[in-house]
Design a protein around this nucleic acid. Structure first.
Lengths: 162, 162
DNA sequence: AAGGTGGGTTCCAATATGGAACTTGTCAAT
DNA sequence: ATTGACAAGTTCCATATTGGAACCCACCTT
């Protein structure tokens, strides 16, 4: 399966990864959530090549995750900002951050701590059940076919020449 | 910045992505959470090439996200299973699933629904504050330097020949 | 011994990425 | 009116990474 076919899979993971699942896109989005907006700022922050950055930003804009808006006048400059759809990726980023803090941090601890303005505490994101509020773990969740389910067309094993 | 340098960045997103942030790894992990264990089963499910699959499984094993265990006897077969560290990626996968369900599903709805055995409801994962339990959104969270923080060494802009 | 299976490796062509230089439009200073 | 600077890209080429298919090997089964 090639990368551009992923988006048409009957799987929300595949569909999401067809948008954000490449080498650099999530790093770009991390920067967006940190307030980075300008082309050169992404470049400096990420060490990504301009070529790839340009390509990824365009893809994110075409997927409606970012929008490109002009600002200033004469000279007009552009900034890339998260759309609501892009904002909704916050749980993905925060889950990634927490896993990194838990499992990939050096001895000193997490590089960044998060402060919840609503309650005033230092916190991390926790995934809970939308219905009962209990923390989720894989063992207590069953996956069942939903309304958009299509039985995967199992690719026939390539026939060996007989 | 090259891919193999990502892991040494002072950022939990970068560190996490150095482990799971490539084209196929998250798809492999999705399969793991769905109960796929054998080499050929991953291949059939993903349509990934054997070469890349082999490489990714080895990387995940070396990062302690999966472990390779022999089972059966004569012939010995192998299976790849999630470690606890791998299991902890569940929130990442579920956040990705929910975003895909919300924004990339077709008109029929989500391909998979989730049933929480603990409470008996159909549900999705929600990210909440670990302290107050309120749903999180980016606007209500401040990021501050933590114990493992190191001021990023800003790469000097390459000097233009004067 | 011939064929099947699981779990890989090897090889080559096609893609994608890294690195650096070049382009375009606009401003600001000399 | 030129020179230089800056933001935001594009272009070009060398190097890495993938996709696709074939090959390998140990161990069954018939």
């Amino acid at each position: 399966m090639r990368w551009d076919e992923l988006g048409s899979e009957t799987c929300s993971v595949a569909r999401t990864l067809s948008v954000i699942g490449d080498r650099w896109t999530l790093m770009i989005l991390r920067d967006c959530f940190m307030g980075v907006r300008r082309f050169e700022a992404f470049e400096a922050s990420l060490g990504i090549t301009r070529h790839v950055l340009s390509d990824r930003l365009q893809k994110l804009v075409s997927e409606d995750v970012l929008r490109k808006e002009p600002y200033g006048e004469a000279p007009v400059r552009y900034q890339y900002r998260l759309t609501e759809k892009g904002f909704d990726l916050y749980p993905v980023i925060m889950s990634i951050v927490y896993w990194g803090d838990s499992h990939q941090a050096d001895a000193r601890g997490a590089p960044i701590i998060h402060h919840h303005k609503t309650c005033g505490h230092q916190m991390h994101g926790t995934l809970v059940c939308s219905e009962c509020g209990e923390p989720l773990d894989a063992r207590s969740v069953e996956a069942l076919p939903g309304p958009g389910f299509t039985r995967p067309a199992r690719k026939p094993k390539r026939a060996r020449p007989s």
